[in-house]
Amino acid sequence: MSENSASASDYWKANLRLVRNCLIIWFLASFGFGILLRPLLSGIRIGGTDVGFWFAQQGSILIFLALIFYYAWRMNRIDRRFGVEEN
């Protein structure tokens, strides 16, 4: 039982770590580059405007997509590593 719950809490910690890292990128791609940091990045030009505009209208969406698939893939591997995947 104690061994089980230790591995359960490790599993949960691994999950939280992964979620935290993904959410940092999620925040940077949208609120960061798309809104708050846009003035700082205004020197980088793309297609007649600055890169912040690109992040706000296109880049953030592409990054969100990559993040979810990365999370699903990593998490399903973590499931198997801790032996908690569905049978």
């Binding site: 999620w26 798309g34 505009f53 953030s60 979810i68 999370y71």
Partner: peptide, 21 residues
């Protein structure tokens, strides 16, 4: 214009939260 990019980011970024949380 740009200010309404909020709709684009907001209505897609929520799926990241949905998938992870």
């Amino acid at each position: 214009g740009y200010d309404n990019s909020t709709y684009l980011m907001g209505w897609t970024g929520g799926y990241v939260l949905l998938a992870m949380l």
